[in-house]
Amino acid sequence: MMLPPEDITAIGLSLKVALTATALALPFGFAVAWLIVFKPLKGKVFLEVLINLPLTLPPVVIGYFLLLLLGKNGWLGKLLTASGIEVIFTWKAAVIASAVVGFPLLVRSIRLGMESIDQQLIEASRSLGASWFDSLVTIVLPLSLRGILAGSSLMFARSLGEFGATIIVAGNIPGITQTIPLAIYDYASSPSSSTMALSLCIVSVVISVAVLFLHEILARQLDRSSGL
């Protein structure tokens, strides 16, 4: 199976976008999950609705909102343009689209991991002289690793498949913003390219299977080393 150079670029770009989006969202996802699980916040339910909204909204709608926000006349877009940063129709826009769409999945998984931590473990660490941050780093973080790993895998996989929001904010420019799903969409629209579409589909399956395997292997290693 030989892939044309633009497909190789699309695969590379997909991986780059998914990795960057996951890495970028991870600290925020961890912080938000921590807030929801451990902090008695007023209006927590609104926070939860806001975070889960991308899960229920059509990605195209999210893409459109992002376009309004980051476009030349959007309030964030104006700010970015003034600082000389171009986002719309670049790979950065694809990263932002993926990060927003995958964020609820990430938070949910980390939160599940955190909710399984006994509150008394944290109280024990605090009573033994650990500040809240020390306790966060030495107790909460290591005990949430499974959730973090599951959330990251899910988010990475979701980013690989992101289409709707991406095509609106990043467009479908081969070599610049064309990720695997966008390339498949292009091939699928012309009847002569069905083999090419199928090749990229196979690549997608291979990457997804690899991600799932990697997740399983890491989770097992984590279980063994943490003694859980």
């Binding site: 473990l121 605090r126 009573s127 809240w132 030495t138 290591p142 943490s226």
Partner: peptide, 19 residues
């Protein structure tokens, strides 16, 4: 804050850090 009080707790279940 709890860490500054220097009051250590022992619970019903040992609450050893499992990791």
């Amino acid at each position: 804050s709890p860490e500054k009080r220097r009051i250590a707790l022992v619970f019903q279940h040992a609450m050893l850090f499992p990791h």
